[in-house]
Design a protein around this nucleic acid. Structure first.
Lengths: 213, 213
DNA sequence: CGTGCATGTTACTTGCGGTAACCACAGTCT
DNA sequence: AGACTGTGGTTACCGCAAGTAACATGCACG
């Protein structure tokens, strides 16, 4: 039968695909997210049309590339989040894992956060449709963990999602800023964010002699 | 002297510039952030080189455009943040103001969050350098307010900045997600986020019968 | 042998950012 | 009046990257 053949070819195609992705990875890491298809193809030792046969268009390639890294990052985040420890410790570990990841490979991070957007024929874009899918996935993931671990009373599911996306956004924006300016150590940043989540904003006293009242 | 003449010409140029910006605004709002220079020029009733004479390059135009909206948004946020009210109320008002803004004009919002990035000759990009400047500005602004209003003890300045960027990121990501899925009303979202900032995450009890321990 | 069929190539089209060179009209100087 | 300058405008082009069409090649199967 040709089933065995088909699987055989399938495997070959998959291997090819993985090789191509790795080449794309190298060149994107080297040249940034603006890497051209020509450059990627050259790095892979082939030419453009093959890339298009495999991934459809640039968006497809980038999506596949992003999925790899996103999955990897999400795995490590899950590990930190699921560790058997106090909640505060888990939160800090998760924050630290994320920050360590973006610190170690800023190029990857930058690529993930700004996937191809300027592609022509891009109409019909409902807001947020192709806005960083990594953030969305992380938000959903975190929401799930929150919802299944915490007792939030009625409306817990929606609240968990709000918090999931909110916390992820906090982590992301703070990390982005921190990576650009490096105003403090990673540990300090982690502590600061955890403190924020732990309600220190609400607990802090008004500054004496402040403006207004 | 030609000083009066110069100011005269300056004014004419400024008026022109504003007209061009308004045309650009219209077309960006209509066609999204991927709007071409040609389209913008056509909308303004002129041709490309004039745009380039005024704004240098596409990045310049987009920066000018973004500055207008960013300034406007920041103004309304400042108003909400500086209102004479309890802290929680102020926070909720600020969140609501932001969400109302992005809800009212999602196209503007989307444009602001993803300014041109794919320009060629883009190497030497330190991470975060051209990543959404609106977020940065909002973060810094909020940090300043926090720092001058709250008594945070030692290291208050850095902590305030961490919180500023963190909170802004939270607001942004949650808003982005919410705008895409509309899973709940604006008021519910505001409440949820404020609750998060008020430490309900830390205060929540473990779910009974949860997985693991 | 020829017929598929996957893999690869060259060479092209299209569209965009950006620029050079040219045009026209206002005012100014002599 | 007529040459001189500068400002707002245009056409026509370059370079480059995405994406495609059409052609070539190698290999299994009847």
């Amino acid at each position: 039968m040709d089933t065995t053949q088909r699987t055989e070819q399938q495997r070959s195609a998959d291997r090819r695909r993985r090789e191509l992705l790795e080449a794309a990875d190298r060149v994107v890491l080297r040249d940034g997210p603006g890497a051209s298809m020509n450059a990627i193809a050259a790095e892979a030792g082939i030419t453009k049309p093959i890339l298009y046969r495999h991934f459809g268009d640039k968006g497809g390639l980038y999506a596949a590339l992003a999925k790899r890294h996103t999955d990897a990052l999400l795995d490590s985040l899950r590990a930190a989040l699921d560790a058997p420890a106090e909640r505060r410790e888990r939160v800090e570990a998760t924050l630290d894992t994320y920050l360590a990841a973006i610190e170690a490979r800023p190029q990857v991070y930058r690529f993930l956060m700004h996937p191809a957007e300027g592609s022509p024929g891009d109409q019909g874009f409902d807001v947020g449709k192709h806005s960083a899918p990594l953030l969305r996935r992380m938000g959903e993931e975190l929401a799930q963990v929150i919802e299944e671990r915490l007792d939030l009373g009625p409306g817990s599911q929606q609240l968990a999602r709000v918090w999931g996306h909110g916390i992820v956004g906090m982590m992301h924006a703070a990390g982005d800023w921190w990576l650009g300016e490096r105003p403090c150590s990673r540990a300090e940043l982690v502590r600061g964010l955890a403190d924020l989540l732990w309600g220190r904003l609400a607990a802090a006293g008004d500054k004496v002699g402040g403006p207004g009242f």
